[in-house]
Amino acid sequence: MDVLWMIVLTVGLLGSHCEGAISCKNENGDNVDWFILYKKPAGFDYVYIDSTDQNLKENNKVKPVNHQAGFLAHTLKPYFERSSDFEFVAYNDQPPKGKEEKEKKTVSSTYGHSKGVVMMDTTNVVWLLHSTPNFPAGDESNHFYPDTGKTYAQIFMCVTLKSTESAQIAQHLKDINAYIFKEHKHKKLKDSSNNPRTLPYHGDLLSAGGSQFKRFVKQVSKKRDPKEGDLYVTIADTLQSDLYIQTWRSVSKDPKKRPLSETEKKKLVTITSVKTAAGEWSCGCDHSKWCVSESKDWMCVGDSNREPSQFERPGGALCINNPSVAEAFRKIIDNSVPVTDSVSATECDPAPPKRPKVDSTG
């Protein structure tokens, strides 16, 4: 009997330890291995898919993306509380204005066009990648989502990893030259290696729940050559798949400044509009950066647009290998064009909204 009670006690302690570890959360505050949240433009509602229910569906309207008890606020709770055994870095090349700053910071283009939050305790790492400027806007659950984040569609990908993966994430942040605007006891999330890595490269990650992910770091092209500096060329050739791609883009009449429509091996297809359970919108009002493979099971959230100016900036992506996710994102593609450089302003959006100056590169 004593042995039985010891077993019960041990299992109980282990269970409570796992329950207390940080994790991506759903809108009920329950742990999930991963989630992807896609916010509509001109509002705070969204569609989402997560590890517990792999169907892309609309939020319940009660908890929009900026709600203090929703997906993001629940996930960021450790960020707000900052316990003694916890560390984090928040990075954003368009950071929020600090309390002592009269104007928003202008971040050098030598930094990656990257945005995210990485949190870590003794058990897990939570990596939240996103496309939203000025996020997180504050340190409290009732004021963390920026008002400026309402205008355009935005995307968030969260994955729960074991703490042993912290070195890989630290390496990734260094190689994309992420602009860290806030940090807390981030010793394990800082890569101090002086050994340069050959770019581009990719690496495999396994979530805490056993899901397969792959991270990419792209090459920098000072000549703005898309064959070298386009993140999506790297992804397509590595995954050996044609890609459907959604990123912010301006229209150039100069063929030399247009992104490639094909790599040497694969086709790059521009998404011009999507149709989701939360609404329909065109690429002219979509600030998200994501792609999905045409026939394989990969869906990626990136940090770079298909713009010549971004070919010379560092950047990367995180991709999930999941047939349900890939199929869900293929299904919301309402319109696309196989030749990327044929997209015009009219096709993207008949009347694109005026963009804030702080977000001039998307």
Rank of each mutant, 00 (worst) to 15 (best):
P64R: 02
K61I: 05
S51T: 00
T122N: 13
L56A: 09
N59I: 03
L76T: 15
F86R: 06
H113A: 00
S109W: 12
F44S: 13
G29C: 03
F80D: 06
Q94S: 06
L76P: 14
E81K: 13
K63Q: 07
G29H: 04
K39Y: 01
P41D: 07
N59T: 03
Q94L: 13
K57T: 01
S84N: 08
Y38M: 12
S51V: 00
L76Q: 15
Y38H: 10
G70A: 15
S114I: 05
L37K: 08
Y91H: 11
K39E: 02
N59P: 07
L76S: 15
E81L: 15
S51C: 00
Y91T: 11
V118F: 06
Y111V: 00
F44A: 11
V47F: 01
E58I: 13
N28W: 11
M119E: 15
D33R: 04
D53V: 00
G29P: 05
D30C: 06
F71T: 10
P96I: 03
T106C: 03
D53P: 00
L76R: 13
T110I: 07
E58L: 11
S109L: 10
L76V: 11
Y111S: 02
S114R: 06
Y91G: 04
E58M: 14
S83P: 03
V118W: 05
F86W: 05
Y38Q: 10
A42G: 09
L72S: 03
N28G: 12
E58Y: 11
N55E: 02
S84H: 14
A69L: 12
N60V: 03
P41H: 13
D85T: 14
W34M: 02
V65K: 08
G112P: 02
D33Y: 10
Q54M: 09
K39T: 04
K63E: 10
T52Q: 06
T106K: 05
K115Y: 04
E58K: 10
Y46S: 00
S84Y: 15
D93L: 00
K102H: 08
S83M: 09
N28Y: 15
E87C: 08
E81Y: 12
G43Q: 14
F44N: 07
T122E: 09
W34A: 09
K97A: 12
S108R: 03
K77E: 12
S109K: 12
S109R: 12
F80I: 04
D93A: 00
K57R: 07
S109M: 07
V89L: 08
W34K: 03
I36E: 13
S114F: 02
N60T: 02
D45K: 03
H113T: 00
H67R: 05
K115H: 08
Y79P: 12
P41S: 09
H113K: 01
N59G: 12
L37F: 01
G98V: 15
F80G: 07
E103A: 10
K39A: 10
Y46I: 01
V62Q: 06
G70Y: 08
F88H: 11
P95N: 08
T106M: 11
T75R: 08
E100F: 13
M120E: 15
D45S: 05
N31S: 10
F71W: 12
P64N: 02
D93H: 00
D30N: 07
E101D: 13
Q68R: 15
S109V: 14
A90S: 07
V62K: 09
R82I: 12
K77V: 06
L37A: 04
V117T: 07
